[in-house]
Amino acid sequence: MDEKFKRIALDNSDTIVQMWLDEIESLKDGNYTSTISDELFESTNREFVNVIFTSIKSQGATSTVENFSEKIINLGWPLSYITDGLQVFRRVTIDYILSQSEKVDSAFISEVLESVDKWVEPIIRELVNEYSGSWEHIVSLQRVALQELSAPLIPVTEGITVMPLIGTIDTERAKLIMENLLEGVIKNGSEVVLIDITGVPVVDTMVAHHIIQAAEAVRLVGATCILVGIRPEIAQTIVNLGIDLSKFPTKSSLKKGFTRALEITDRKIVDIEGKDNNIDEILGSIQKGQGE
């Protein structure tokens, strides 16, 4: 930015900031910021404009820009807040500089526009790049966290493991299910694995194919797979699609599946005097463990 225009902007920063705040405030009711509290909106705006002036004074302040971009992401505000704010700042700065000149011709206007652009555009690029980088990093961390939760393998008792599935199963998640199943069966020495699809909203041909593949993989490493949680509508869909699930046991509920798993491992639940050790308590402890 031309030094003379830079000096005008810095010497009159309070006025320019107030012009910018007034215009940003007028946009609040018509966009995504309408639900934001006035206190948070004003404090963030002042921090934003401080980032801009810090950038021109130091010719780049990466840490300040990075921290502000991360804050906007954590607040859940879109990238347009940054781009709109900078465009408004560019406009009010140009208007103010032009208003301070006694002689305004096309050459002077062109000089002002070029100078302000050279100041604002690097800030836009830096803020957008930092915002995008921070966003990608956060999304990556969330994806990893979701993957860890998407196919949990829970050892219930010796030789019996449960994998509760919730939500849609796509190809990527099916691969994760397969990996977790095989790794868990070997690690826990499982004889029986219960795959609970109670929380899977739709079982189509693709989902059934992935489940069958997982069950077959479990069988190849010496364990038995039982599919549980088959609701009436899911059973009807499976029949209508002609999907063959006859190669491994199926049960309508986790309770029935667990009872069958005990039979396969030559065990059963018995009542001990003074204690009511029944299957409902065991399954209740499983659900409590999932909640924790």
Rank of each mutant, 00 (worst) to 15 (best):
residue 247 K to Y: 11
residue 193 V to Q: 12
residue 163 M to H: 05
residue 201 P to V: 12
residue 221 V to T: 14
residue 223 A to G: 04
residue 231 R to M: 12
residue 190 S to T: 01
residue 155 P to C: 15
residue 187 K to R: 15
residue 262 L to W: 03
residue 288 K to D: 09
residue 232 P to H: 06
residue 258 F to W: 15
residue 246 S to H: 07
residue 170 D to L: 13
residue 234 I to S: 14
residue 164 P to S: 15
residue 206 M to N: 09
residue 197 I to R: 10
residue 268 K to N: 06
residue 264 I to Y: 10
residue 190 S to N: 12
residue 267 R to Q: 07
residue 286 I to T: 12
residue 148 E to H: 03
residue 231 R to A: 01
residue 248 F to L: 02
residue 246 S to E: 05
residue 234 I to D: 08
residue 218 V to C: 05
residue 240 N to P: 04
residue 237 T to H: 13
residue 155 P to N: 02
residue 225 C to R: 02
residue 161 T to S: 04
residue 160 I to C: 09
residue 175 K to D: 07
residue 178 M to E: 02
residue 253 S to C: 09
residue 240 N to F: 11
residue 159 G to M: 02
residue 251 K to E: 02
residue 288 K to F: 12
residue 192 V to F: 00
residue 253 S to V: 14
residue 262 L to I: 12
residue 188 N to V: 05
residue 286 I to D: 02
residue 273 E to D: 10
residue 182 L to R: 01
residue 260 R to H: 15
residue 269 I to Q: 08
residue 208 A to S: 06
residue 259 T to C: 05
residue 259 T to H: 13
residue 242 G to D: 01
residue 176 L to K: 04
residue 213 Q to G: 09
residue 151 A to F: 01
residue 270 V to D: 04
residue 197 I to H: 02
residue 169 I to T: 02
residue 204 D to F: 07
residue 168 T to I: 11
residue 173 R to Y: 05
residue 275 K to T: 12
residue 211 I to N: 10
residue 210 H to P: 00
residue 276 D to V: 15
residue 155 P to V: 05
